[in-house]
């Protein structure tokens, strides 16, 4: 039995280390935010340097999984701040009644659309786009109709299990409304497969399984900046590009409301904002003093931005999903 206890200890049942006097701020976020290559480590270091607190970043899968967990936990949640929901989830998140108003009004957002929400604060954003390899694809489609008419193979994500997948669903819906069904039916023979998440799809694209993959306009920046590879590009679509806006909010039942508030402010500081472009590979909510990192100027800038307001996104998604399922099931 002694052996079993040793094992249990090794597995993390160890007694908690004697707590320091510092207050702890618990932030729920998505996994890639806290991973070694995400913004998490730098943000934690910078915030702890000024807050005299212990910042506890907890990865909870992705945005949708995080909301599911919040719902399961209810008011007993340990979270003080939630970071990483997007506008497709904020309506449902607000409905839980778990969030408090942020009360921050003096921010100058660098955003191509209007943004006004008294509960959720945006911290970064991006446009969805189809990414391709310039050395392989020459007849780049300029819209969904051209894509559907081409014999290009694409890999997309399942809207039921993936944030970009849901983004694409709403993109087609926002751009085409009642014609969305026809677009999906036209795309059916272009779609190689529909994956569970972004990683699988992007991996398949890099392995040459498809000509294009649904990702972000900022994806080529990674290859350029981190790998010195300029062959990847995003295809600009005339219909405009759907946006992903990532937001954060604080939990009303938190026992650290001031600390939560100061974390929200910190996330909008130049220090934090300048970390995001090359770790989260998204656009910052505020233009950093130094400007965007070199390489971002090569990215496409869509002429139109598409976005459903949160309440409407929640309303249209179920019907849009049904259309998607029927069109691709034939």
């Amino acid at each position: 039995m002694r052996y079993a206890i040793t094992l249990a200890t090794a597995l993390g049942l160890a007694l908690p280390v004697a707590a320091e006097e510092k207050p702890v701020l618990t932030v729920y976020t998505y996994d890639s935010f806290v991973s070694d290559w995400g913004p998490g480590p730098q943000i934690e270091k910078d915030f702890e340097a000024v807050c005299n607190c212990d910042l506890n970043l907890v990865g909870t899968g992705d945005g949708a999984a995080m909301l599911g967990r919040l719902k399961l936990e209810g008011t007993r949640t340990r979270a003080d701040v939630v970071l990483g929901l997007d506008t497709n989830l904020t309506a449902a998140a607000a409905e839980t009644g778990l969030f408090a108003k942020h009360g921050i009004e003096d921010v100058e957002l660098a955003l191509p659309v209007e943004w006004d929400d008294e509960i959720f604060l945006l911290y970064d954003w991006g446009w969805f786009a189809f990414v391709y390899d310039r050395s392989k694809v020459t007849n780049v489609p300029k819209n969904f109709r051209e894509l559907a008419a081409s014999d290009l193979k694409i890999v997309i994500q399942d809207p039921r299990s993936s944030t970009p997948g849901l983004g694409l669903l709403l993109w087609v819906q926002a751009a085409y409304g009642d014609e969305a069904r026809a677009i999906w039916e036209g795309l059916a023979d272009n779609i190689v497969t529909v994956t569970k998440g972004w990683s699988e799809a992007y991996g398949m694209f890099l392995d040459g399984e498809a000509d294009m993959v649904l990702s972000y306009t900022t994806s080529p920046a990674y290859h350029l900046i981190a790998e010195g590879d300029d062959t990847k590009a995003a295809a600009p679509f005339e219909e405009g590009h759907y946006m992903q806006i990532e937001v954060m909010g604080r939990i009303a039942s938190s026992d650290q409301p001031e600390l939560a508030q100061s974390f929200l402010r910190f996330m909008l500081s130049d220090m934090a904002q300048s970390v995001l472009p090359t770790t989260n590979w998204m656009y910052p909510a505020l233009m950093p003093e130094m400007g965007l990192p070199k390489g971002f100027e090569t990215l496409i800038t869509p002429e139109r931005s598409l976005l459903y307001p949160p309440a409407e996104a929640a309303k249209v998604r179920d019907a849009a999903l049904e259309v998607w399922r029927e069109a691709l099931s034939q």
């Binding site: 996994d31 890639s32 991973s35 907890v58 909870t60 992007y202 991996g203 392995d207 981190a226």
Partner: peptide, 24 residues
Amino acid sequence: ALFVDPAEATLPLYLYQLMASYRM
């Protein structure tokens, strides 16, 4: 995902984290 702690990632999860960070 409910039980996952990315800071204490197991190898399969670490693999996914690498993929999610473009590091194929």
